[in-house]
């Protein structure tokens, strides 16, 4: 288990990516320039590198020359939308491409996808006795599969991605049912109580009155 290297000259963006990835238990190291990144790549090992194309000193494409020998998978970050940039990045050996601005779920999906594809890491999410496979969209408790509806699974995924954080009802509704759907708070409550029952997490998914829900963090011994 090595950390993820986030290379971006924009500190806020690097920080944002670090926050997002740490939610699913991926530790991050930040670099704010090409040379800094090159130093880190030579001295440390990483499971994944998120690389901004436009760096002040060394171009992201040029940095690929340092990265390729280590075999570390790379996802390019870019504000450019020109097709030839994407093709160029992919040709140079990048695994994937994320165009700024991006949403957190998209970033997570890409990162999980690349990690699994590269075989770098077990991307299954674990919470107590429950194992969730985001790829296969299955959940198992003590090795016994738990049948979940798509909405229930999306809710579970949202909770797992934001452990220890109280998620607002509105955000959850929007995340699971989409912007256009108009489910009531009642619907959310029903789904949440069924999820609790199926997983046996009555006390682990906490209801915060008038605010939302939160999945408790595991006590690390």
């Amino acid at each position: 288990m090595y950390p993820v290297l986030v290379v971006d000259d924009e500190a806020p963006i690097a920080e944002l990516i670090s926050i997002t990835l740490s939610q699913i238990g991926l530790p991050c190291v930040q670099a704010h320039s090409g040379s800094e990144a090159a130093d880190l790549i030579e001295t440390r090992k990483f499971d994944l590198i998120l690389l901004d194309v436009m760096l002040p000193d060394v171009d992201g494409f040029e940095l690929m020359d340092y990265i390729r020998p280590t075999g570390t998978p790379v996802i390019f970050l870019t504000a450019r939308t020109a097709v030839d940039d994407r093709v160029r990045g992919l040709k140079l050996g990048a695994y994937d491409y994320i165009v700024k601005p991006f949403a957190a779920p998209e970033l997570l999906a890409r990162v999980e996808g690349v990690l699994r594809h590269a075989g770098r890491r077990d991307t299954k999410l674990r919470a107590w006795d429950v194992v969730v496979d985001p790829e296969a969209r299955t959940a198992a408790k003590n090795g016994v599969p738990v049948p979940l509806t798509p909405h229930e699974f999306d809710l579970l995924l949202a909770l797992l991605h934001n452990r220890g954080i109280t998620l607002y009802r509105s955000a959850l509704l929007e995340l699971v049912w989409g912007m256009d759907a108009e489910p009531s708070n009642r619907t959310l409550d029903i789904h949440m109580s069924r999820l609790r029952r199926k997983l046996g997490w009555d006390d682990r998914i906490r209801t915060v009155p008038r605010v939302g829900y939160m999945l408790e963090e595991e006590e690390t011994p």
Binding site: I13, L16, K100, F102, A104, Y168, V208, G212
Partner: peptide, 20 residues
């Protein structure tokens, strides 16, 4: 244009998701 937008959108999303 997109660099500040990425930060603004990302952090705004973070804030509205839940109690940080």
């Amino acid at each position: 244009l997109k660099t500040p937008m990425t930060s603004i959108l990302g952090y705004a999303d973070l804030l509205r998701m839940g109690e940080q």
